Amino acid sequence: MLQRLLLLLAAAAMIFTGVWWLYTGGHIPRRASPPSPAVVAPAMPPAPSPARPAPGSPAAWIAAPGQVEPWSGEIRLGFAMEGIIGAVGVAEGDTVRQGQILARLAGEEFQARVAAAGQALAASEARLDDLPSSAGKKERQDAKTAVDAARAALAAAQAQAEKAVLRSPINGRVLRSFRRPGEVVSPSRDTPVLTVGDTSRLRVRVAVPECDIARLAVGQRAVLIPPAFAGRRFTGSVSHLAPSLRGPKNARSLDVVIALDGTPHLPIGLAVQAYIIVGPGGEKELEQGMPRGEKEKEKRGSAPGPRRGT
């Protein structure tokens, strides 16, 4: 009986073992190890962001277009009365002296009037001188009045005759000749007969935008680059700032005059790009502001222009 009971228990154990094996898929579960304590990494400071570049300061130079002028400016000459041009005695490029007659109106009547007025004055003075000592006070006064009137008539004739000639107001050169003999002229017409200028020294007149004028001052140095003169640069100094702005309201500018150094031989009216040095190191910055390609062009003989700084 006991042996039979033991066989039943062994069979039950085998059945239980088989069921358990099928249930677990043949894997023996392992005892879970206790969780290891979490390692907390020390807090790291945030990585610094790239520093922003400081806003660019204004360039140490101002760029503006301009053109070459004679030191005196270009002086327009025309007759002060209407008439026909009789002669023009000079040509473009001629050197002239102050007071020299450059042109005349046609007609001999102006000099004839001067001659007649001179004769009348001489006669009046002779009559005054020939008065006898017995002449009365009124007679002598009338003779003096006649002399004064003759002098006034001569002065008027001379002034009228002077209007018929065109004289140079300066020592300089004839820059342009606009009118020819036989043409009718009048003070109301805008076209001059000639223009003259003192070219012994030259200057450049530039138009600086209104936004830049606060940094301008007389005496500042300037670099001037004429596009027509490849690879050449000229220097000068600011000699004058205009008292008022010109141009439309949304594009006003200030006229700035730059006196050129030395006596360069440049044609009047030549276009130039001016760079006025308004801060320390401006000339060096101007060189650095020129793109590499433009520097090479300058060496090869083309006319470069530095880029405008910010």
Results as ranks from 00 to 15, higher is better:
97 R>Q: 08
114 V>C: 11
110 F>Q: 14
72 S>L: 12
119 Q>R: 04
91 A>Y: 08
79 F>A: 08
114 V>Y: 14
110 F>K: 11
131 L>T: 11
129 D>R: 15
123 A>D: 14
94 D>S: 08
92 E>N: 01
132 P>E: 10
68 V>W: 11
100 Q>A: 08
131 L>P: 09
103 A>M: 07
119 Q>F: 03
107 G>L: 02
122 A>H: 15
93 G>D: 06
77 L>W: 13
131 L>R: 13
71 W>R: 04
99 G>R: 07
79 F>Y: 06
66 G>R: 09
81 M>S: 08
76 R>I: 00
96 V>T: 08
129 D>W: 11
71 W>L: 04
100 Q>D: 00
98 Q>P: 02
108 E>S: 15
67 Q>F: 02
112 A>L: 15
98 Q>A: 10
120 A>S: 13
79 F>S: 00
93 G>N: 02
77 L>F: 12
122 A>P: 12
125 E>D: 12
94 D>N: 03
104 R>W: 09
60 A>K: 03
82 E>G: 04
81 M>F: 00
60 A>N: 12
102 L>S: 10
94 D>C: 06
90 V>P: 02
128 L>I: 08
89 G>H: 01
118 G>H: 14
102 L>Y: 12
115 A>I: 09
130 D>M: 09
83 G>M: 07
105 L>E: 15
88 V>E: 01
87 A>T: 05
64 A>F: 00
74 E>R: 13
96 V>D: 07
86 G>K: 04
92 E>S: 01
66 G>T: 00
75 I>F: 08
61 W>N: 04
102 L>Q: 11
64 A>W: 03
84 I>D: 06
86 G>L: 02
125 E>K: 12
88 V>K: 01
79 F>V: 10
81 M>C: 03
130 D>A: 15
67 Q>K: 06
127 R>I: 13
112 A>M: 14
128 L>R: 15
89 G>K: 01
90 V>Y: 02
111 Q>H: 13
112 A>D: 14
124 S>I: 12
126 A>N: 14
78 G>Q: 11
111 Q>Y: 12
75 I>W: 14
104 R>M: 10
115 A>L: 09
122 A>G: 14
65 P>V: 03
76 R>E: 10
110 F>H: 14
95 T>D: 05
76 R>L: 00
128 L>A: 15
104 R>P: 01
64 A>T: 08
121 L>G: 00
59 A>P: 04
125 E>C: 02
132 P>Y: 09
73 G>E: 10
127 R>Y: 13
113 R>I: 05
81 M>D: 01
122 A>D: 15
108 E>Q: 15
77 L>Y: 11
106 A>K: 09
99 G>Y: 04
78 G>C: 05
